[in-house]
Each structure stands twice: as structure tokens, then as C-alpha cells.
């Protein structure tokens, strides 16, 4: 450590100038960044609060991302269910048509064909996926819930 050979009154003057310039620097830094606390020593009592607030903000942003993804799934699920409802309406209509006595064997075969294609569509809807996730599969979301296997017979 070097002993200053300065006159004490000059030293006092310099100390005062240094203090003013420190305060000026700090004020400029606060104005230019818009932040009052930049280093932990600026206001130690607020550090915990700042970090906790930032963590909460981060978590909230992540929840927003999560919710937008869930919303996409729910929207898609709603559309799929609406389509399924329409398909069931059609199935009901076809069932009523087939039950009347005016049907011939060939027209019933047409109805059966249409029912088959509706079955395919229903199974297709059950396998709706959003971003690689089958939304109607519950926890087994990596596999489609149903597949069509026409070799099975009703018991």
C-alpha cells in the first residue's frame, strides 16, 4: 500500500469528488437500465423477494405454455367429439332406415357398407393425436386406443 504524499485537504477534496462521481455513476446506471437493484449489494433485503418473484413469473409463463398446449388438445377433442356425435346421428338414421320393411337385400348391403365406413371414421376419431399424443388414450398416450379388427365376431 502506497502512502499518499498528498496534502490532507487535497485528499479530502478528492474523496469528496470520488463520492459524488460514484453516486452519479450509480444514478446513471439506474436510469439507463431502469433497474434499481442490479447487484445483490444494491439492496440485499430485496434479493430474496426479487428472485422469488422471478421464479413465480417463470413458473407462470410455463403454466401459460402448458395451458395453451392443453387448450389445443381440448379444442381438438371437442371437434372430434362433435364429429363423433354427427356420425352417431347418422348411425341412428341408418339403423331406423334398415329396420323398415321396404329395404331390399342390396339396399341393406349399401347401408352395411356405409356403417362400415362410419366405424372406420369413429376409430379414426378415437385415434386423434395432438403433437404426438393420442388424446383419447388416457395415460397410454403413445398408442391409439382402438384398431379395427373385422375378424372378431360379436359373441
Amino acid at each position: 500500500m502506497k502512502i499518499p504524499a498528498l496534502d490532507p485537504s487535497i485528499q479530502q477534496f478528492l474523496d469528496g469528488i470520488n463520492q459524488i462521481s460514484d453516486r452519479l455513476n450509480r444514478a446513471q446506471r439506474e436510469v439507463s437500465t431502469g433497474l434499481r437493484v442490479q447487484q445483490v449489494s444494491d439492496d440485499p433485503d430485496q434479493v430474496s423477494t426479487i428472485l422469488q418473484a422471478r421464479a413465480n413469473l417463470d413458473a407462470a409463463q410455463q403454466i401459460q405454455v402448458n395451458l395453451s398446449r392443453v387448450k389445443a388438445e381440448v379444442d381438438t377433442a371437442e371437434q372430434s367429439l362433435q364429429s363423433a356425435v354427427q356420425l352417431f346421428d347418422r348411425v341412428q338414421t341408418l339403423g331406423a332406415e334398415g329396420a323398415t320393411g321396404t329395404q331390399t337385400a342390396s339396399s341393406r348391403a349399401d347401408l352395411a357398407q356405409e356403417l362400415g365406413s362410419i366405424l372406420d371414421q369413429m376409430v379414426g376419431l378415437s385415434g386423434t393425436s395432438v403433437a404426438g399424443r393420442y388424446i383419447f388414450s388416457g395415460d397410454s398416450d403413445q398408442q391409439a386406443p382402438y384398431t379395427v379388427d373385422l375378424s372378431q365376431r360379436a359373441p
Binding site: V40, P44, A55
Partner: peptide
């Protein structure tokens, strides 16, 4: 919590630095 504990450590450092300065 983890972040609070980290904040306490940061606050301790900040207090030490501020009082030393």
C-alpha cells in the same frame, strides 16, 4: 424453498459486500 434459500445466500453476500463497502 430452493429459490428462497438461494436468495438468502445472495442476500447474505449482498449484505456483506454492502457493509464492507
Amino acid at each position: 424453498t430452493f429459490i428462497q434459500a438461494y436468495g438468502n445466500l445472495g442476500a447474505q453476500v449482498g449484505r456483506d459486500v454492502a457493509s464492507a463497502k
